[in-house]
Design a protein around this nucleic acid. Structure first.
Length: 179
DNA sequence: CTCTAGATCTAT
DNA sequence: TAGATCTAGAGG
């Protein structure tokens, strides 16, 4: 099952751990995904769809393989790969990547990821099948998978803030959670 | 219309 | 630990 879109067409919490090791290709870059985070359903208080379908969250309800790219804190673009079926808001945030010749500490954070890959507003709503960003199956398998709570979602409250929906490859630098 | 908080990062 | 920088979404 190496068709990227079909691979993504499942709930984000199931896709996110398996997405480690897959590669993002755009222009001259081929980045290996080393950290992911899942957001799923309107009940997930950390998900942008927690307030229902709005102009911003609409993309989360699109078909698997759609890109959900949004501006965070007024200065960082976040790349999400939409998952699951149409009308089910579900997506995986790409938190860290590995790029040839680049220090892993320079590519460990969603803001850095988008910046390094040159992603911004115009990529929002694009689809993997028709845009300039492509998802390729793993070449180098993931050695060991680690799991923990999502970052920066304390506002989501009990039950959602601590949900261990973040995964990363052991050995790669991870951004510590803030309290 | 106004206001606030935010899926961050960097420098201090 | 604070400041940069901006916009979606809620409330009036």
């Amino acid at each position: 099952m190496h068709d990227p879109v079909r691979f993504l067409a499942r709930p984000a919490p199931r896709v996110a751990p398996e997405l480690l090791g897959w590669r993002l290709a755009i222009g001259p870059h081929v980045a290996r995904i080393t950290e992911t985070e899942a957001y799923h359903g309107e009940r997930d208080r950390a998900c942008h769809a927690s307030k229902g379908r709005t102009p911003r969250s609409a993309g989360l309800y699109a078909r698997a393989g759609t890109l959900y790219v949004y501006l965070c804190y007024g200065m960082h673009w976040m790349l999400n790969l939409v998952c699951d079926d149409v009308d089910v808001p579900s997506a995986v945030l790409i938190r860290s990547i590995e790029l040839p010749g680049i220090d892993p500490r320079a590519s460990n954070g969603p803001g850095k990821v988008a910046k390094l890959l040159g992603l911004h507003r115009s990529h929002n709503g694009q689809h993997l099948d028709h845009g300039d960003l492509h998802l390729l199956p793993p070449l180098v398998p993931v050695k060991r998978r680690r799991r923990g709570p999502r970052v920066g979602v304390a506002y989501a409250g009990p039950g959602w803030a601590e949900k261990p929906w973040r995964w990363w490859e052991d050995g790669f630098p991870v951004v510590a959670n803030r309290l």
